[in-house]
Write a protein that binds this DNA or RNA. Structure first.
Length: 908
DNA sequence: GAGCCGACTTGGCTAGAACAGC
DNA sequence: GCTGTTCTAGCCAAGTCGGCTC
């Protein structure tokens, strides 16, 4: 039902704080008790909460009397955070900040860990509107040898890694010793009882529980990572032979892939499933951990790629360095924060938020939400330029002209060479033209006049003076300002995509069957607004129109949505910006989950290794698929409809996508997400090689390789291995662990620039693992030849200088230059200096060329934004005196505000 | 348990801003 | 100040995955 918005209830964010980003932050201490657990754990916990603040989200009547029916009669979950501490947070509980964090505010916590001056801390904190409170877990930094060491009563064997136990090897040193505590310690697995023999391979108990048989000793000290403790693994792994296709062909470059440990099989012991009904308090104490081995003990947590290269290098840390580094890092934030502080002071939006947002389905995300809706693209202004049909100008209505212009401006793109694109465009455009229109055939259309008009307009815009450009920009900002912000629980937060997508032609990637279709204009009547129950409903900006619906659903984070005009079954959402607290919290949870995988990875690898030879085909397929996801960082691979591009992920690999190359190599060649080609030849364990061969037998090239498998089965299995584990967690885990390892292995003494290069190298490694490719820039070859020319020129100069040097040594004047002019007489010392300078220039240029060439098809940004735990970067910057802004740009600094006060000793 | 819905996260591209070199 | 290059924010497509329904 369409809902008319009231005319006056528009929050005018322009009233205040117009001059910059939001600077408000959640300030209640209760919000700092956010629970970063994975959603299923949280859900279980929330079910036990007292239901406070729960209210139905549907059928709510807007203040103006408008009906605001929710789509579903959802009951909003309790807002009350579970009375639990956050065990999987507290990344570095053993460090200086740990104790402080128990009692101090986040600011104090930050201070404790970084030695910043008060103002810097305050301003930094305030500036980051995204700041997510650091949890102050009582578990943090404590040894947690609580009374529930009942678990210690279990057999000693239970404290050992399953794999070790199965091998009958005593491994007392492998008791869990790490900062983070698995989710079970939240209390979901309050009591683990051994049900069956560890030798029973068909034990029905979930693996996560069975793994958790390795009861912790409670010694969850948060000691700094010490790479010296690690045993070199090089000897126990196989070197991969990863062949790479030419980058020009957009092939992947997955180097150094990781053969998994052999002989790591673990049997599965049984245990009771988690007693979800236990009270949180009780459960908190009943720590059960799958940390089968000391994190530092071996390299199972390290991506295979890294294990291959692993060296025994260790990082040295001194207290003086810590002091220095924190200073460097902190100074980099100072300038950002003055303004923010002022804004903070002037804000009327600072309120205490009693309940913090937390992610997880059905969980309350906010208490109050105020925003001004969305802004629509301007209506189409006809230009009147006539296109040609059969060489003659034709009249078009504004609507027809608008769509013709969309097509015309794409003249220079690759889409114009795609039949599907033109076919779809014609189908949609011809409907708008109508049956009786002169234009009957797209091939007879000449859009050049419109294209030329477009280019002229572009040129005009380019030629505008800077004042004109500035004025335009300011005007735009003025119009958009009120849509740019939302107030979430009293905190002013940036809205991400408040602009409604303008009409255009659908630019599907790869061979998308719908490319070229008209993406029609979105109207207010297409848009559902989600807003706080008591907040004024945003004014509909288009007179005479009204919103489709108004909802007050605080279990979701979207502010508005509309149905995708290309695929009406799908939605386009308006969310808060990446720098918002909600997104920050969610990000943090993601990395915590990936970090938790480190504690489980050995047993997970052991379990799937064992299943490579299972008689149960599905088990075998799950094992091999998990292996590939772990080893190659493949995506899960959901099923796709016919009206989507034909791309695959792990579960949807076709027989023809994998070629077996004897004796034990697999060649992958498929189109992945965004139709990016993945080509990689990798050596695998023999059982995997054989299993793939078996899966291919009797099938055609287009048949599913994993015919018994889909993502839901796979993820359901993974959840048995670790709470909340899904296929995509492996990508985050492998990316972050690779960065962490590489940074700590490679970073040597040197200047900041050299360290930044080390970082980029690690970043590149991750991008390669994740197959983050980009297309070669159009100007790449021109840039390269320019650099080559410059190097040649400099080499010529060098040659001349050497001649001059010889002459100078003999007391002769230098030769004339290319123009025949006499050069200045220089001393041999001066010439030597020039030679050195020229050499340095040449070296730098050659390095730049190499970097440019190396990175021409590798996209570094994606992994930085989505896969690399920012705390690794921040901690590394602190340890090595690298200003954080050398690595993170402004938006990443805002996005990762929650990670900025990490202890310098933090390791993933 | 399959299929679908809904709510997100991930990801490459690009216009334009910022920067570097001259 | 100009020009070429690099960086970045924003765009929006394309994934993942949980939960619901039947």
């Amino acid at each position: 039902m369409a809902v008319e918005a009231p005319a006056k209830h528009v929050y005018d964010f322009n009233d205040e704080d117009d001059d910059g980003p939001a600077v408000f932050k959640r300030n209640s201490t209760s919000s700092s008790k956010q629970n970063p657990l994975n959603s299923e754990v949280k859900k279980a916990l929330s079910q036990r909460s007292d239901g406070q603040s729960g209210r139905p989200s549907s059928n709510v009547r807007a203040p103006n009397g408008q009906s605001s029916n929710a789509q579903k009669n959802k009951t909003i979950g309790s807002s009350k955070s579970p009375p639990l501490r956050s065990p999987i947070l507290s990344p570095k509980a053993s460090t200086s900040s740990a104790k402080a964090s128990l009692v101090k505010s986040p600011v104090a916590n930050f201070k404790a860990s970084t030695s910043l001056n008060d103002q810097s801390i305050q301003t930094l904190k305030q500036n980051m509107s995204t700041a997510v409170k650091e949890e102050k877990s009582p578990l943090k930094g404590t040894t947690e040898t609580n009374s529930d060491d009942d678990d210690d009563d279990d057999d000693d064997d239970d404290k050992q890694p399953l794999s070790v136990r199965l091998k009958g090897i005593s491994n007392q040193g492998n008791k869990g010793v790490r900062t983070s505590i698995p989710v079970q310690s939240q209390g979901l697995v309050p009591k683990i009882e051994v049900k069956g023999s560890v030798e029973d391979p068909d034990d029905e108990a979930p693996l996560s529980v069975r793994f958790n048989m390795n009861s912790n000793t409670g010694a969850l000290s948060c000691k700094p990572y010490d790479s010296d403790e690690k045993k070199p693994l090089v000897s126990k792994i196989q070197q991969n032979d990863s062949t790479m296709k030419d980058k020009q062909q957009k092939s992947s470059m997955l180097s150094g892939k990781r053969p998994l440990d052999k002989g790591n099989s673990s049997d599965q012991s049984s245990a009771k499933k988690p007693k979800i009904s236990d009270s949180p308090r009780t459960m908190k104490c009943k720590q059960v951990t799958l940390k089968a081995e000391k994190a530092d003990e071996d390299d199972d947590h390290i991506p295979i790629a890294q294990r291959i290269k692993k060296s025994t290098s260790s990082d040295s840390k001194t207290s003086s360095m810590k002091q220095k580094t924190t200073k460097v890092v902190s100074s980099s934030f100072k300038k950002v924060n003055k303004k923010s502080k002022k804004e903070m002071k002037n804000s009327k939006y600072i309120k205490s938020t009693k309940v913090s947002p937390s992610s997880g389905d059905g969980q309350k995300k906010w208490n109050t939400l105020v925003h001004n809706g969305v802004i629509f693209p301007p209506t189409y202004k006809p230009h009147g330029v006539k296109m040609l049909y059969g060489g003659r100008p034709v009249d078009l209505t504004p609507e027809q002209e608008e769509v013709a212009t969309m097509f015309a401006v794409m003249k220079d793109t690759d889409y114009m060479s795609k039949t599907q694109f033109k076919k779809n465009f014609w189908e949609d455009w011809s409907k708008i033209l109508g049956k009786n229109h002169t234009i009957k055939d797209l091939d007879k259309c000449d859009f050049t006049p419109i294209y030329e008009w477009h280019m002229q307009e572009k040129e005009k815009k380019k030629q505008m003076s800077s004042e004109e450009k500035k004025a335009l920009k300011e005007d735009k900002l003025k119009q958009e300002e009120k849509y740019m912000w939302a107030i979430v629980d009293g905190v002013k937060e940036k809205v991400g995509n408040f602009r409604v997508e303008p009409p255009g032609l659908f630019r599907g990637r790869g061979e998308h069957p719908k490319m070229g279709k008209l993406k029609r204009r979105i109207h207010p009547s297409d848009i559902t607004i989600n807003i706080g129950k008591d907040a004024p409903i945003p004014e509909c900006p288009i007179p005479g129109e009204r919103w489709k619906d108004i909802k007050h659903d605080n279990t979701v984070t979207w502010l508005a949505f509309w149905n995708d005009p290309i695929n009406p079954k799908e939605f386009k959402y308006v969310f808060l910006a990446a720098s918002s607290s909600l997104k920050g919290q969610s990000d943090k949870e993601k990395y915590e989950k990936a970090r938790m995988l480190k504690d489980y990875i050995k047993n997970i690898r052991g379990a799937y290794t064992k299943d490579f030879t299972s008689k149960d085909v599905m088990k075998r397929q799950i094992a091999v698929a998990t292996y590939l996801i772990d080893k190659l960082a493949l995506r899960a691979g959901n099923e796709k409809d016919d009206d989507e591009a034909d791309t695959v992920g792990c579960c949807t690999l076709k027989v023809g996508n994998v070629e077996c190359i004897p004796p034990n190599k697999l060649k992958f060649d498929f189109l992945g997400k965004d139709s990016i080609q993945y080509v990689n030849t990798v050596e695998v364990e023999l059982p995997v090689y054989k299993a793939i061969g078996q899966f291919q037998t009797g099938k055609s090239k287009t048949d599913d390789l994993f015919d018994q498998l889909d993502t839901s089965k796979l993820n359901a299995h993974l959840k048995e291995l670790m709470p909340g584990l899904t296929a995509k967690v492996f990508r985050t885990y492998n990316a972050s662990i690779t960065l962490d390892e590489m940074l700590n292995k490679e970073t040597k003494d040197g200047d900041v620039a050299e360290k930044v290069v080390i970082y980029q190298r690690a970043n590149k490694e991750v991008a390669i693992i994740c197959n983050h490719q980009r297309s070669i820039s159009k100007s790449h070859s021109a840039q390269m030849s320019r650099l080559t020319d410059k190097i040649t020129e400099l080499k010529g100069v060098l040659k001349e200088l050497k001649i001059d040097l010889d002459r100078a040594k003999k007391g002769k004047p230098p030769l004339k230059d290319a123009d025949g002019k006499q050069k200045r007489n220089l001393t041999p010392e001066a010439i030597n200096k020039k030679i050195a300078q020229t050499n340095a220039k040449i070296e730098k240029m050659e390095r730049d060329m190499q970097t440019k060439e190396d990175l021409k098809t590798v996209a570094l940004g994606t992994s930085k934004i989505n896969y690399l735990d920012p705390r690794i970067t921040v901690a590394w910057c602190k340890r090595h005196e690298v200003p954080i802004e050398k690595i993170f740009n402004k938006s990443l600094l805002a996005k990762f505000a929650w990670a900025m006060d990490v202890d310098p000793d933090f390791r993933f």
